[in-house]
Design a protein around this nucleic acid. Sequence first.
DNA 1: ATTGGTGCAAAGGATTTGCAGTCTA
DNA 2: TAGACTGCAAATCCTTTGCACCAAT
Lengths: 148, 148
Amino acid sequence: MEHSERQWPFGRQAVIGLLTEYGIQPTQQRVDIAGILFDHPQHMSADQVLTCVNKSRPTVSKATVYNTLGLFAEKGLIRQVIVDPNRVFYDSNNLEHHHLYNIDTGKLVDIPVGHLKVEGLPELPHDVVAEGVEVIVRVRNKPTRLFP
Amino acid sequence: MEHSERQWPFGRQAVIGLLTEYGIQPTQQRVDIAGILFDHPQHMSADQVLTCVNKSRPTVSKATVYNTLGLFAEKGLIRQVIVDPNRVFYDSNNLEHHHLYNIDTGKLVDIPVGHLKVEGLPELPHDVVAEGVEVIVRVRNKPTRLFP
DNA sequence: ATTGGTGCAAAGGATTTGCAGTCTA
DNA sequence: TAGACTGCAAATCCTTTGCACCAAT
């Protein structure tokens, strides 16, 4: 089952079910972390997750956040999005989609596959297998006109 | 002028001309670094450049390599390619193109725009301007079959 | 009991920065 | 000579690791 079939936001029970489906033992801190990611489809850096999960009271350590996000990504529960050299984002939207990245603000937005198509991909060398095709549209803020 | 109109490999004089065109003062080490990048179209990490430029004899420090690559990218002479969370690649191919990245080997290969097309991009918000559209095809080595 | 998970602090690697010395125009 | 550019080392930032403790089966 693809978790996108479920309803957002995921409740605590749904999150536990989700982890289990992906072969991840649902421990306290893993559920806490997943609970944040799956509140709604979003992109977060490890640091944002750390801050957010410990907002009410410190429950999860930095190392655990990194380990957990790494685990989630490895299991296919979330996706790493690499658009900024300074940090990795983790994406809880499991539907196929692409990204729009604002270089100035660091804001990352989904582009649904919708009618966006990539055509004419070259043949792959015979010794490799495709892992994914990603389209990244980079934008920056429109500069304020100095001379209108 | 787009530097891709020139001939590869760029000779030392052509490199100096190139830097000048891009408003970059052609100092000794900048020319050395650019000389490597523009020997042929390629992707290199800062570390690779550092190693390569100092192959014959140490001429450039690590800090200068980073600063210089940053400057080149800022001036539009080369492009940053962000496909690996562990390092940034710098791309001396100025023609529009996309990338094929082998996660296992870390090898990065160009995909000429040729017949590859991206269609159906959504409209951009009014307050931003497009900086570039990039397609990244990620592949990994075909696993050795344990049970053929 | 055994296995797996977590926290903490220390280690690591990539990149940046501060500052004094050096080069260029 | 003034302004730019470099080198070096120290400083940062993000991320991973080592290891002892805790939790669940």
